[in-house]
Design a protein around this nucleic acid. Structure first.
Lengths: 191, 191
DNA sequence: GTCTATACGTCGATAGAC
DNA sequence: GTCTATCGACGTATAGAC
């Protein structure tokens, strides 16, 4: 399963494997999981469909191995508490047009697949809900961080899945000025 | 294509067609679009797979014809402006465990299909964004209503796609008390 | 050891027999 | 009006050529 680059004098196949992974990452992120066939990945990599399965086990495993979510909120989560909301919304706004946002949309739509759904849920838990929970003061930090996550992912949905024009055209400053206070209502609840 | 019930003495097929639509609605909402085969729908309806296609044109058209989103926020959108946020969040919270919420998740995950994605986007526009925009006072009503929609759909995502335990177990009152003010921050911006 | 040829079962969809 | 036969494409598996 994991024969990583342990032997430096691998004859040839490591290169083929890399080309397959590269083609898979590109096609999956452009067209999604269901709309990308194993055969088309093989063709783009100049290889055979059987090889793809031989190297990666299944289309599902190939997807999980090549498409992984960028930790888009990692930096924003370090912001001081009074600036946290603006930092999170700004990070989401800056994802517009990026590959990371497209990949989020692809993962979302592929989450009907059990492994993909679990993987995505875990990434959200580890990359957003859990770090947020630790930073919150006051009552019910877990529910509040989950709701903040819902706000941020709802924003990403509008951008990635619906390409909402009103939000695509708005300036980052406008989005932060409007959505920031809404996020702050959960960071600093009125109790 | 459209031979609706124009002749009252249809021999038999109208009943078969109804059974197919019924089975399709049930299986699609339980298993999603991709995980439901035309053959399994035909079997559940006691009919033949070719008949299913013959009556409905394609699996895609059958899906669009049978799975349609319940206008879950129609009533809440009538609430007086000061109560609107609580009404919307309450409506979302009450969707937990319902068929309507499962259907939302199914549509979301099937939105990689172009027709499904457009249909869902249109339903969101007509059932949420547009009515909300008309009710908002103050600047940038369109962007604000789009962001409120993002909040509400983000909440539905957490409930339908991730079955988030923190939110599934929270009381409707708790959710309204926490998320309501966050929605209100967009209904009544501080300017 | 790296890859190709081939095949199996299932899918959505179509043509035509009854 | 309904079903049988079949199509091409899919994911996957394996035998064996180089």
């Amino acid at each position: 399963m994991q024969d990583s680059e342990s032997s430096p004098f691998q004859e040839s196949s490591a290169e083929t494997r890399r080309r397959i992974a590269e083609a898979a990452a590109r096609l999956f992120s452009e067209q999604g999981f269901q709309n990308t066939s194993v055969r088309s990945i093989a063709a783009a990599a100049g290889a055979d469909a059987a090889l793809v399965i031989r190297y990666f086990g299944s289309k599902e495993d190939l997807f999980l191995a090549t498409i992984q979510m960028h930790r888009a909120f990692e930096e924003a989560l370090q912001a001081p508490l009074p600036d946290l909301a603006a930092a999170l919304v700004g990070a989401a706004a800056r994802m517009r047009g990026t590959r990371a946002l497209r990949i989020y949309g692809v993962l979302m739509r592929a989450s009907g697949n059990q492994k993909v759904g679990q993987s995505l849920a875990q990434a959200i838990e580890d990359g957003l809900v859990q770090p947020l929970t630790e930073r919150l003061d006051g009552p019910q930090p877990r529910v509040r961080s989950t709701l903040i996550t819902a706000q941020l992912l709802g924003l990403l949905d509008a951008l990635a899945l619906r390409s909402d024009t009103a939000l695509m055209e708005a300036g980052e400053h406008t989005l932060a000025a409007l959505y920031g206070p809404a996020v702050n209502a959960l960071i600093f609840p009125v109790s």
